[in-house]
Design a protein around this nucleic acid. Structure first.
Length: 281
DNA sequence: AATCGTTCCTGATAGC
DNA sequence: TGCTATCAGGAACGAT
């Protein structure tokens, strides 16, 4: 499930791989955006805002891709076999999670930029660059940028009535935190996922601030998680999986105290936590 | 205005 | 073995 660290890993890789390339053709069996418009446009920059991947293109356009849960971008060579796209060579692109190709962008160097997305939830849109920048103003601050101070976090959380896990996953409050890193950050900060934001102490807020930055930075350093669908642009896995403290570790021992990790549903989403380290009261 | 529930989709998994 | 039912989940959207 691509969150800030996975998206950051992707754009860093893509900037090395596809910068300066021009789209020569487009194929999709699913997407409806004006694909012909992409032809002839050059990739000037690849960047990220929250979990959105943005390709700034020539002529004032930007291609927006949100991978949602199971989408990820891959670069390499494929061939079309009876309507299905399969890697042209042996290697990590043959990983089973890379086989759901619903969008193919042909580059002018013979390589292909492809979107693999098992659940077809990913969003692909063509925007005017200036309009997209306005759209992004609705999002919360980037937690790894300098402007995200402790005071800023407190300001963003002020007056929020919900449970802490739900609130920090709200992209309008803080950009880029999703289900995995929310659970991980709350474990790190020793805060119960259902604790109301209003009841967080000054110390807990400070711990949360540090924890969010810590888990996201570690995620980026390790190239993201790959226990499910996400893969890096070359098809290989990220290395965050072994660093997971709670996410999808229900029934396993807490790495801090040995208590069995529990799962509960908070706002229709799984939350994993240690019942000893993260008490509600 | 803010918050809550529903919806999109299909591979993986569990159950019979 | 093979079929069917259930689950996962980001964020847009509608409802309250």
């Amino acid at each position: 499930m691509p969150e800030l660290p996975e998206v950051e890993t992707t754009i860093r890789g893509l900037n090395k791989k596809v910068l300066g390339r021009t789209f020569v053709d487009v194929w999709s069996g699913w997407y409806k955006f004006p694909q012909k418009e992409l032809k002839g446009k050059k990739i000037l920059n690849v960047w990220r805002r929250a979990k959105n991947i943005i390709f700034d293109l020539s002529e004032g356009y930007s291609l927006l891709i949100h991978q949602k849960m199971t989408g990820h971008l891959l670069v390499g060579k494929w061939k079309n076999q009876n309507g299905k796209w399969v890697p042209a060579e042996k290697g990590p692109l043959n990983d089973p999670y890379n086989r759901f190709i619903h969008l193919v962008l042909f580059l002018d160097n013979g390589q292909i930029l492809a979107l693999s997305d098992a659940r077809k939830f990913a969003k692909v849109e063509l925007w005017k660059t200036n309009e997209l920048k306005k759209e992004f103003e609705k999002l919360g601050p980037e937690p790894l940028e300098k402007g995200f101070t402790f005071a800023k976090l407190k300001q963003r959380l002020a007056g929020k009535k919900g449970k802490v896990k739900q609130v920090i996953m709200d992209q309008a409050v803080i950009a880029g935190v999703g289900n995995i890193y929310a659970s991980e950050a709350l474990w790190e900060a020793k805060i119960h996922p259902e604790k109301p934001v209003l009841k967080l102490t000054e110390q807990e807020l400070e711990n949360l601030y540090k924890a969010i930055k810590k888990v996201l930075e570690l995620g980026i350093k390790l190239g993201g998680e790959s226990f499910s669908d996400y893969r890096k642009f070359d098809g290989t896995k990220g290395d965050f999986d072994s660093e997971r403290k709670v996410y999808r570790r229900e029934g396993q021992k807490c790495k801090r105290c040995g208590t069995k990790i529990k799962r509960l549903v908070v706002g229709q989403r799984s939350a994993f936590y240690c019942p000893f380290c993260q008490k509600l009261k």
